[in-house]
Amino acid sequence: MSSRTDRPAGALNPWRDLWLPAATTAAMVAALWLVFVVVPSERVQGTVQRIFYFHVHLAWMAFGGFVVTAGASVAYLARGQRAADRLAEASAEVGLLYTTLVLVTGPLWARPIWGVWWTWDPRLTMTVVLWAIYASYLMLRRLGGRDEVILRYAAVLGVVGVLDIPLLIIAIRLWRGVHPAVLLAKDADAGLANPMMVQTLIVAGVALALLFAWLVVLRMQFSALDDEVEALSAEVAA
């Protein structure tokens, strides 16, 4: 539980309220300009392949977010730090948003390429499992409120849930699904043969990483405000 400080949680913070959103916006505009204007269409898949530049990074950032949740949950379980718990929750929530977008953009890419919206491919199935694990983590926290025992159970789930990620990554090699495993094709005209495609992929990655960081920081500010309300309510009631 946080204690009251001289600086309210909602006070203006230049890094959070100016520099990070400005950097995110600039990177995002550059990424969208590259995706929609500059980068050539992939030879085999055509225009729809441009979904790839965001779809792939949404997945990797979500994985990164869940790893942060697991790490912060370990810190919370070991030392009981409320700041670590806030980071775990914020990272899980934004990770869940990104995973949801992976599950939305995936079928929109699959339909014109595979001819189906969805198939129970190992990687797709493991992604749904990952989504369900962290949705459960967040629901458990909502239902438990500030109960310390529930928060600790949720932290354990936050740690155990991350074990799905290596399974998800190796799922293609283990069970041979239809989801592509490699980015670079041997065919010179297919895959990410054009250097501009690789550059677009990098810029999109930076943009989505900045957006992730900004959303996590905003979500942590929200938790800090919630803690402040709790502390003040206790003070007023005393």
Binding site: L97, T105, L108, W109, P112, L215
Partner: peptide, 20 residues
């Protein structure tokens, strides 16, 4: 393909703006 591309990026921005 353009329809699917537009739908995917619209979904991304709609969800992010809604969350914000």
């Amino acid at each position: 393909g353009l329809w699917f591309l537009a739908a995917a990026y619209t979904a991304i921005w709609f969800a992010v703006v809604l969350y914000l």
